[in-house]
Amino acid sequence: MLNAQLKSDIVAYSKTIGIDKIGFAAADPFKSLKERLRRQQDLGYQSGFEESDIEKRTEPELLLNGATTIISIAIAYPSRMKESPRSKRGERRGLFCRASWGVDYHHVLREKLSLLDAYIKSKVPEVSTSSMVDTGELSDRAVAERAGIGFSGKNTMTITEEFGSWVYLGEMITDLYLEPDEPVEEGCGDCNICVDACPTGALIEGGQLNASKCIAFLTQTKGFLPDQYRSKLGNRLYGCDTCQLVCPKNKGKDFHHHPELEPDPEMVKPKLIPLLTMSNREFKEKFGNAAGSWRGKKPIQRNAILALAHYKDETAIETLIELMQKDPRPVIRGTSAWALGKIGGDKAYHALYMEQMREKDKDAANEIAKGLSMLQNKV
């Protein structure tokens, strides 16, 4: 009875600190998840960003001795932007996905979990806890599903009744017993819209993702983007929202509960050309508080170059030529060369032709050759 009252108190307190949804799950091993993760590993579907130890990802007891309960929390974030700036000729813009709008959600959720932790310890001083957000060992989505926050959709997102999939997730393992909530039984049914809409075919089947093909993953890589994905990127600088935007469960869902998660339009839809010559300091000043900045400026700049190629923006040719000739990073030089070939024109051709004799890096030289080939094929 005491624990039932404590659970009720925790739920009530969570609402006072801005947690939009909270659920409780038993800290038993995630056996079916373990099988799925092994299959993903065998098929080479993992991104490399996740915890590599499958045992740690599926055995809460390995993360906290005496683990009994996992508390799952969800915070809703906006799906629409007020006063979204328009992309126009000469001022083309890129786009950060909604999970990178506002302040880095890792900080926001960790603060909520810290407050929740302090509250629980004020009630039960001897309790042990361990909290994590996204980069922890446990699968946020598997925990959320077990805790009744929502169900796992075919797009691999946790879909809640109230907020759709526009939620950030975090969890706390504890050795305190609290009555588990019932998992949500609802699912996607016959709907396959997200699988069909995925630009790269990364959603292999309902609920399984080949992360190595997912645009959200690809935008975070630091090397040359594989040729077959360059035209799929569009104007995306970080992440991809396609599988969420097409989901019927997200129709009409847009929440602005947390001021710190509101997007700065000029930050999340920045002009592309100024991005290309930004210093490290300028990049940190503008993007440093966003989740999408965690890999640094090189992937964002590479993606901005590909976005300019997507737009065939002739006003970017001068800047791209300068990058191809002078940037110290082979990925930026080479991607600029490829973009020049995509945009086309005599000026681009001449610059590529001259640069092919100077470029010493093998990979960058290969991109120059690709750029020249594209222009020659247009003649």
Score class of each variant (00 low, 15 high):
residue 329 R to G: 04
residue 268 V to I: 14
residue 299 P to H: 08
residue 210 N to S: 13
residue 240 C to D: 15
residue 293 S to E: 08
residue 246 V to F: 06
residue 261 L to D: 03
residue 267 M to N: 06
residue 209 L to A: 04
residue 258 H to L: 11
residue 239 G to E: 09
residue 220 Q to G: 12
residue 232 K to C: 15
residue 246 V to C: 13
residue 211 A to W: 05
residue 240 C to L: 05
residue 321 I to M: 00
residue 263 P to M: 07
residue 275 L to F: 05
residue 291 A to P: 04
residue 334 G to L: 01
residue 257 H to C: 08
residue 266 E to N: 15
residue 256 H to W: 11
residue 270 P to V: 06
residue 320 L to C: 01
residue 303 N to K: 10
residue 208 Q to K: 15
residue 286 K to H: 07
residue 215 I to Y: 04
residue 222 K to F: 12
residue 234 G to L: 07
residue 325 Q to H: 02
residue 286 K to E: 10
residue 278 M to N: 12
residue 253 K to Q: 10
residue 223 G to H: 08
residue 331 V to R: 06
residue 208 Q to I: 15
residue 270 P to K: 04
residue 329 R to N: 14
residue 334 G to N: 05
residue 285 E to V: 10
residue 340 L to Y: 00
residue 261 L to I: 09
residue 322 E to H: 00
residue 337 A to Y: 02
residue 308 L to N: 02
residue 209 L to D: 07
residue 286 K to Y: 03
residue 293 S to F: 06
residue 289 N to V: 10
residue 312 K to S: 11
residue 342 K to L: 06
residue 317 I to L: 01
residue 323 L to V: 01
residue 295 R to K: 15
residue 274 P to C: 12
residue 328 P to G: 03
residue 319 T to H: 02
residue 276 L to C: 09
residue 227 D to W: 09
residue 249 K to R: 15
residue 286 K to A: 08
residue 222 K to M: 13
